[in-house]
């Protein structure tokens, strides 16, 4: 296959044991592919299961059935059945995830939060920080904040730090969960630019974007999640 992501008939149900074993079907029959250099946007109302699908592709939520085929270092790995070690390897080398909220370790300076994925990938601290600085600069985080931990930043600033951290690596797959939710117009434009650059580098992306304008600007294809509604 040439697709980077090949999801076939994946389904997910939550069983809430603490609420008397209620079953909450989330999605079923999820099937779509993403080619290199393509950005697929998941659409559908809140609660339709968009974030759950993203988390299934990242291996964060387990699938009840179906297949999450990911092209990793030239081979296809099914994340729905992969061993934890394989999932971690796929995350290190193949899939990046930009969540809505920054989950940073206390005490770590912003510049290092952003540079960390590159350092973990073997780059020297100085080079990684230089690239982190460039991205922070593009995302309009003033240099005087770089040495501070992002915990005290505003919501929008934290999200931009998160985006910088998510976009800094050269991973072939990126999952974006509302990357522009709390950004102003100028910074939304920067994100659109960053996504376009990733496409030119052949990165396959799956995004959730509520803003219609941004969606038009980044989407190559739209997958309507309501067709995977699992309500029995």
């Amino acid at each position: 296959m040439t697709a980077m992501i090949d999801v076939t008939d994946a389904s997910k149900t939550f069983t809430m044991h603490l609420q008397g074993g209620i079953e909450l079907p989330v999605v079923r029959g999820v099937t779509f592919r993403v080619e290199p250099g393509e950005c697929v946007v998941l659409s559908g109302p809140s609660g339709a299961g968009k974030s759950s699908i993203l988390k299934m592709i990242f291996g964060n939520y387990r699938c009840d059935s179906g297949r999450i085929g990911i092209r990793h270092r030239g081979e296809v790995i099914d994340l729905a059945t992969a061993e934890p070690r394989q999932v971690l390897n796929v995350r290190r080398a193949t899939i990046g995830y930009v969540s809505q909220f920054l989950r940073a370790v206390p005490r770590v300076a912003t510049i290092d939060v952003v540079a960390e994925p590159l350092i973990a990938g073997g780059m020297t601290r100085a080079d990684a920080q230089a690239r982190a600085g460039e991205l922070l600069h593009r995302l309009n985080i003033p240099e005087r904040l770089w040495q501070l931990p992002p915990a005290t930043f505003s919501g929008g600033e934290q999200q931009r730090v998160n985006i910088a951290r998510g976009f800094i690596s050269d991973l072939p797959i990126l999952l974006l969960d509302e990357p522009t939710a709390s950004l102003d117009a100028a910074n939304r434009a920067v994100v659109v630019e960053l996504v376009a650059e990733k496409k030119r580098q052949g990165v396959a992306m799956v995004a959730i974007v509520h803003d219609d304008e941004i969606r038009h600007l980044i989407a190559d294809r739209i997958v309507d999640v309501t067709s995977f509604a699992a309500a029995a």
Partner: peptide, 12 residues
């Protein structure tokens, strides 16, 4: 399982 899997999507 993977730590984030077990903590974000606990089954038992």
């Amino acid at each position: 399982g993977l730590t984030d899997q077990v903590l974000d999507d606990p089954r038992e």
